[in-house]
């Protein structure tokens, strides 16, 4: 690890000021930043530690229209929050099905949203070319071991999968993030936070270096209660998704779908919202056939590589299964 200076921020404003110095980066839970520093992928000159900022660590469900989460809240705390469990089971599940409890006790929501890919060519360092790690060096995954790589949003520069779970469930529920920077605060819809790699895979989101995610707001909806997060992976726990699906439903009295949310994880270079699949169910009942059909629509544009085509069929089935669970909860 390269030597770096460490400074502990006493306030959000103080952190923003500190981020103004060249090479300064944020440290929150550390589970991504410090890990990537060990791998020499992140090489900050200065780390600005915001882990201790109590002002960012809260869950506020007092508003009738919004669930409000502090960006500094720990993943484990939000996963276990009774309100979240009841009103947004998909969000709770996307949190507790990520990593391990130890890591969830450390990692913050804001940091988790910006978690970087687990592509082994990215993390492995030399000798693997990686445009994300070293722009212009190439992409080893394109012709390599791509079993876990993206089916959506890849480019000729990068097919690395966005690895997070929380962003998937938040995306399904139209979450918005609030960002603080030197020019004040602004809001960014979660759907616009992450960007596809294109020719610049080193750029993963729309925030600038001196901005901090301070809050996440999730509009309350009945579909929140009728929701789930299904995560399929190579083992039953403590692993990243091969494919995941966040689904939410609001059903009319006759069981037909009034509102449908479907977002896909583990398959895109960024979180994927399956809007066409959502629309396909409106007004229909959720049956094995319609759920499967929605899954097929969700994966219609998938572009497989060499070893990952099975994740299309797996994803279709995961969406179908997750819709059935959502239906049970929404009924």
């Amino acid at each position: 690890m390269k030597p770096f200076a460490y400074t502990r921020a006493e306030s959000v404003a103080g952190a923003i000021t500190a981020l103004g110095s060249p090479g300064a980066q944020l440290l929150a839970g550390g589970t991504t930043m410090y890990d990537l520093m060990k791998l020499r992928i992140e090489t900050p000159e200065t780390l600005v530690d915001i882990q201790g900022l109590k002002a960012l660590n809260y869950v506020d469900h007092s508003r009738p229209d919004m669930l409000v989460l502090g960006a500094g809240a720990r993943m484990s705390d939000v996963a276990d929050n009774a309100f979240v469990k009841k009103n947004f089971p998909a969000i709770s599940e996307s949190l507790w099905r990520a990593a391990s409890q130890q890591l969830r006790n450390m990692a913050t929501l804001g940091g988790n949203l910006l978690q970087r890919t687990r592509c082994s060519y990215f993390r492995g360092g030399e000798p693997f070319p990686c445009n994300k790690r070293e722009p212009g060096s190439g992409c080893a995954a394109l012709e390599g071991l791509d079993r876990g790589h993206a089916l959506f949003g890849g480019s000729t520069s990068c097919i690395a999968t966005y690895p997070g779970d929380l962003a998937i469930s938040l995306l399904a529920f139209d979450a918005v993030i609030e960002v603080a920077g030197p020019k004040g605060r602004r809001t960014v819809p979660l759907a616009q936070l992450h960007v596809e790699p294109g020719d610049t895979p080193q750029i993963e989101h729309v925030l600038s270096d001196d901005e901090i995610i301070v809050e996440i707001r999730v509009p309350r909806t009945p579909s929140g209660r009728g929701s789930t997060y299904l995560k399929i992976r190579d083992r039953e726990s403590y692993a990243f998704a091969l494919v995941s699906a966040a689904t939410g439903l609001t059903l009319a009295r006759d069981g037909s779908v009034e509102d449908c949310r479907i977002a896909l994880g583990g398959v895109g270079t960024r979180p994927i919202r399956a809007t066409a699949a959502e629309r396909s169910l409106i007004g229909k009942k959720v049956t094995a056939a319609t759920a499967r059909a929605a899954g097929e629509i969700a994966f219609a544009g998938a572009k497989p590589g060499h070893h990952n085509a099975f994740r299309i069929e797996l994803g279709i089935r995961a969406v179908a299964d997750a819709l059935q669970t959502a239906k049970t909860r929404a009924s």
């Binding site: 550390g30 589970t31 410090y34 890990d35 060990k38 990593a99 391990s100 130890q102 890591l103």
Partner: peptide, 27 residues
């Protein structure tokens, strides 16, 4: 593992379990 991937380094900080390999000592 030294990478937060095994849990052998688990300790408690303020009563909560964390992996000490991904905890900078300064924190």
């Amino acid at each position: 593992c030294d990478q937060g991937q095994c849990g052998a380094c688990t300790v408690h900080i303020d009563g909560r379990r964390v992996v000490s390999c991904l905890t900078p000592a300064v924190q």
